[in-house]
Amino acid sequence: MTDDAGAPEYKFRLIVRDSRLADGCTLPDPAGALSALEEFGEDIFFPRPGPPKLCTQQYGGPQVAIVTGSINGHPVSVTFRRTDGCEISRWRAMAPLLGATHGSRGET
């Protein structure tokens, strides 16, 4: 996760086994991250094709978060940005997974 080009990069780790947090988690709020994953499921990482979305054209900031790993045996490699209203909403939904750095909870 980065806050801005040239800013320090933050790396967090969430480890879940059998729907429970496992040793080695480095997220500031691992329970919140697990709750977000349970609430939104893997669809947040694997959006289904459909009709184009109408998104507000607002800029939420330069933050970028790259989530890699696996969920339910499926490899994950997803980028979160705050480039429009839809992406800001997606970012806020998964804020606990993105860590507690500036912007990760949706503030600008």
Rank of each mutant, 00 (worst) to 15 (best):
T79F: 00
L14R: 00
D29E: 09
G24V: 02
S19E: 10
L14A: 03
V67Y: 02
I88G: 03
E38S: 15
R82H: 10
T108A: 14
L37I: 15
R13S: 07
A95D: 02
G6D: 12
P62C: 10
D29S: 09
N72W: 10
H74F: 13
R90P: 03
T2M: 05
A36K: 04
F80V: 09
D29H: 11
K53D: 08
P75I: 07
P8F: 14
G103N: 02
I88V: 11
P96T: 06
Q57R: 09
E87F: 06
P8S: 12
R17H: 11
V76H: 04
A7P: 12
L98F: 01
Q57W: 03
D29F: 01
L37K: 10
P51Y: 03
E107L: 01
T2D: 12
L98A: 05
I66N: 09
T26F: 05
I71E: 06
Q63H: 12
K11V: 14
S104R: 06
L97F: 00
S35N: 14
D4N: 14
T79K: 14
R20G: 06
W91M: 07
A33P: 07
A93T: 00
L37H: 08
G41Q: 14
P30T: 03
H74P: 00
G99R: 01
V67N: 07
T79S: 14
R82L: 02
I15W: 00
L27A: 05
G41V: 11
G24P: 03
L14G: 00
E42W: 09
A36S: 13
F45W: 11
K53W: 04
F80E: 08
R92V: 13
V16P: 02
P49K: 08
P30M: 02
R82S: 08
S19I: 00
G106P: 03
W91A: 05
P52N: 04
L21Y: 02
E107A: 01
A93E: 13
G32K: 05
A7G: 15
G73L: 12
L14M: 10
F12D: 11
D29A: 03
G61L: 05
T108I: 01
M94L: 15
P75Y: 05
C86E: 02
I44E: 08
P8A: 15
G32Q: 05
T101D: 14
K11L: 14
P52K: 13
P62N: 12
M1F: 08
P8Y: 11
D3T: 15
G24Y: 04
I15N: 13
T83I: 13
I15V: 15
G60D: 05
R20Y: 08
Q63D: 15
G73A: 09
A95M: 01
G32I: 06
R13K: 11
P49V: 04
T101I: 11
F46T: 11
